[in-house]
Amino acid sequence: MIDATTTASATRVVVLGATGCVGRAVCAAYARTGARVVGVARTPLPGVDHRFRPLDIAGTAPADLARILADEGVDTVVNAAGGWGRPEELKRGHVQLVRRLVAALGAMETRPRLVHIGSVHEYGPMAEGTSVSETAVPRPDSAYGRVKLAGSRVVLRAAQAGTVDAVVLRVVNVYGPYTTPTSFLGALRERLRRSGPEGLTVSVAPARRDFVDARDLAEAVVLAGRAPVNGRVINIGRGVAEEVRDLVQVLLETAGLRPGAVPLVDAPVSSNGGAWTRADIRQARRLLGWCPRSGVRESIEAMWEQG
């Protein structure tokens, strides 16, 4: 496989959503290549080594955003912005932001490569035992999946029209360093850090999900920033459906708890992704020369230590 740390460095990369789990990993991965990294988010993050520019992309006019990107001399833009929230927040962060970004890139004289972070939830429910490929017709059944798909389609339509140079990475559940506390595993980590195991009971659905370490995803982003993949959708995951209960057990062990110290009780499947997700990652191997490196325990240990 190609090691992202040995590829030729970009002149300058702008990472949107630079303070989140994925954005932080992407900034670090590009910095290792020698690239000049500019992190962008609404609120600065203390203690980072790269340049940071506070900016609300969704609230910035495309012409102004195009001028800002041109002033930075950027040749790659990574959109790792957005997150969970109320419906209006989801639409603003995953659709309005993308529309303004794509319009800005299309207006630039020299167009940077856009690597847009999409989601496996764009595909919608999956049949147990299957692996979803990029040829699947997206049928999201959640608000998050629908706005992510809407944003990805904005990018793909512009790429097909020739107004942007872009690739969409459809990414499975992300964990590893700085896992967001809005996720199931991130919320459990925060609860254990804050209050310990006393009085804690964890409700776990009988679900199996594909997870990828943020650092592995970041390597895929760096590779996608230079590969000839304009207009493509590429799945990024481990290609393994992990038992969520097993992930919880590993997290509890990593927190130093003995088996059985925290009761696990069955709960219905109610979150995005349903009872099963697994990505077919053959395209990532073929087009990017990428494959995941981090195992479950390594990723959960990093999540515990850097959270």
Score class of each variant (00 low, 15 high):
G82Q: 10
A81W: 04
E134L: 12
T180D: 15
T11Y: 11
G274I: 05
V77S: 00
L217Y: 02
E243H: 13
A150C: 08
D216N: 06
G23S: 01
A61N: 11
V244T: 04
Q96H: 15
V38N: 06
P54M: 00
Q249T: 11
A255D: 02
A80Q: 03
V22L: 13
V296N: 04
V250A: 11
V262C: 10
A63T: 13
P112K: 09
R42Q: 03
R100W: 09
E301F: 05
L105F: 08
R286H: 12
R208N: 09
R285W: 12
V137H: 14
Y30C: 09
R191W: 04
A161F: 14
N79F: 15
L16G: 02
G162Q: 10
G83N: 06
R226D: 06
E122F: 05
R24Y: 10
G83K: 03
R51W: 10
A61K: 02
P259G: 08
T254H: 04
T180A: 15
C291W: 12
V222N: 03
R191M: 13
V244D: 05
P54W: 06
L149D: 00
V147Q: 09
I234E: 00
R258Q: 13
P181L: 07
S299K: 02
S142F: 00
G20N: 02
G47P: 04
R286A: 15
V120S: 15
P46A: 09
T76P: 12
V174N: 05
V154K: 11
S9M: 08
S152N: 13
R286D: 14
P54D: 01
T60Q: 15
G47N: 00
S142T: 15
D71H: 04
P54G: 00
T7A: 13
L247Q: 06
R282P: 05
L114N: 14
I300W: 09
R67N: 08
D213F: 01
I2T: 14
R282S: 14
G186F: 01
A10T: 09
S142R: 03
L149C: 10
A35K: 06
R24P: 04
G237Q: 06
D56R: 02
L105M: 07
I68Y: 09
V38C: 01
D246C: 07
V38I: 12
E198A: 15
V167H: 12
E109K: 14
V171I: 13
A218H: 00
L101D: 03
G225P: 07
A302K: 02
H94K: 04
A70D: 05
V174P: 09
F211I: 03
V48G: 06
Q249N: 09
A58R: 01
A159F: 06
V102H: 07
E242V: 09
G93D: 12
L114D: 03
Y30F: 07
R100H: 15
T11W: 10
R208G: 00
V74G: 04
W290M: 05
V77A: 08
